[in-house]
Simulated scan of single mutants.
Amino acid sequence: MNLEKIYLERCDKETEETVEIESPKFLDTSISYFKKHLNEFLYIESSTFNEIKVDALSIEVDDVFRTYMALFGLRAQKKHGEAIKNYLEEHLHTDAIKNYSALFSADEGLWEINLPLDYIEGFKEDMTIGQAISLTYDFVQNLLGHLQENK
């Protein structure tokens, strides 16, 4: 995954106003940044995301469960709902509540997915934001492969 051409914007969760536009160097920051700044989320755009049918990605810490979350819209048909939910159920590893969501937005024509990164194999709290983005990218790529297999 190539993240050279990337747009990063730290935003306030409550107002969605920009706190700071970040340089790609911010990708080297620990993902734990968001546990220290619970009021912020990171909005990320990259043309690389087109490969996985995602326009943009946001990363934050869930206010209730305190899990790291990746939020994105996945361009996939509504008919894939059961396959998407089954994949999430099978590939998120925890004994706790799996606080993911996958809702189809007819207005947007895509799946709005909230993905808890903590439960993806390979996630570590000391990883960088860039590594968390790569982990998310790989997870979504595998999900799309699953959808192709189950057509």
Rank of each mutant, 00 (worst) to 15 (best):
T18H: 06
D28L: 08
E4A: 11
D118G: 03
I84T: 02
Y100P: 01
Y137S: 01
I59L: 15
K151Q: 09
S105K: 13
H37Q: 05
E125K: 10
P24S: 04
G81V: 08
N142H: 14
T94W: 02
L143C: 07
S134Y: 06
V54Y: 01
W111R: 11
G122D: 12
E17H: 11
L144Q: 04
S32E: 11
K13P: 12
K13V: 08
A132V: 06
L135E: 13
E45P: 00
Y137W: 07
A83W: 03
A96Y: 11
E90F: 06
F49L: 13
A106H: 14
H37R: 13
L71W: 02
T15H: 03
E22W: 01
L27G: 03
A96V: 00
A106Y: 14
A70Q: 09
I6M: 06
Y7T: 02
K53R: 15
L3P: 00
E60W: 00
T128L: 14
D138E: 15
H93G: 14
E125T: 12
D62F: 01
E22I: 01
N50S: 14
Y43T: 04
H91M: 08
K78R: 15
S32N: 09
K36A: 14
K13F: 00
V140F: 02
D63Q: 10
E20Y: 04
F104S: 08
F104K: 00
L92G: 14
N99Q: 10
Q131F: 06
E112L: 14
V140A: 01
S101P: 00
F34K: 13
K53D: 15
W111A: 13
E45F: 06
K124M: 08
N2F: 03
K78Y: 14
L27C: 07
K36I: 06
G122T: 10
N150I: 00
E45A: 08
S23K: 05
G109M: 01
